[in-house]
């Protein structure tokens, strides 16, 4: 017996967000002060108005820090989670924004080269789910406790991580001018996608 058929309920009585129309009175400095008092070892600075920055963030603190951001400082929205290959290390860059305070914080976390893993924040913000999957897909950075860490853009069964710096692209082909200007024949691509095992239709 499968799950019972879900029923549809009109979203009445949900939280009213109309206060977002006017900006809050909380200044960026207060946010920084609050973060500094809670996490003294984390270095947060103000880049420009509404743009906070947080470099060399310790990866063990991430979930704790993000929970504090979400629950106490009203950072409701995760804009982006980006992986990066610094060659000496891996890096995950989080951009988390607050609709209420109208500001955005950028968190750069370096991961050691030999252990590219970090705790997931997709339990906190559902929007981070696929960004983390994509980062795994492209860089091979694993996110602990992620509900479904699978390939999302490349087909299942891909055995390489295409955005790593050591993944070499093919050279740009040259037109064969001697042979009446023909382009070289492309090699046939073989799909390894196995996601459609479920019959037709």
């Amino acid at each position: 017996m499968a799950d019972p058929t879900p029923t549809i309920v009109a979203p009445k009585g949900d939280k009213d967000y109309s206060y977002l129309v006017s900006p809050s009175t909380v200044q960026e400095q207060e946010i920084i002060a609050s973060l500094k008092s809670k996490f003294p070892e984390v270095e947060v600075k103000l880049k420009q108005k509404g743009r906070l920055e947080c470099v060399k963030f310790p990866r063990e603190k991430l979930v704790e820090f993000c929970t504090y951001l979400r629950d106490s400082l009203d950072f409701e929205h995760v804009t982006c989670v980006a992986g990066n290959d610094l060659k000496r290390a891996w890096e995950v860059i989080y951009h988390i924004s607050s609709y209420k305070h109208r500001c955005m914080i950028q968190i750069r976390t370096e991961l050691p080269r030999e252990d590219p893993s970090v705790d997931t924040i997709s339990q906190l913000w559902g929007g981070a789910d696929w960004h983390e999957r994509e980062t795994y897909d492209m860089y091979g950075i694993t996110f602990n406790n992620h509900p479904k860490l699978e390939r999302v853009l490349t087909p299942e069964g891909t055995d390489f991580f295409p955005f790593r710096k050591d993944f070499k692209l093919l050279d740009h082909w040259k037109i064969d001018w001697e042979n009446k200007g023909k382009r070289p024949k492309p090699e046939p691509m073989v799909s390894t996608d196995t996601r459609f095992g479920d019959g037709n239709g």
Binding site: V9, P11, K15, A128
Partner: peptide, 13 residues
């Protein structure tokens, strides 16, 4: 239906 709190949490913009 898309609840406002869900919409924010899921990152819909």
């Amino acid at each position: 239906y898309l609840r406002p709190s869900d919409a924010i949490n899921l990152g819909i913009t």
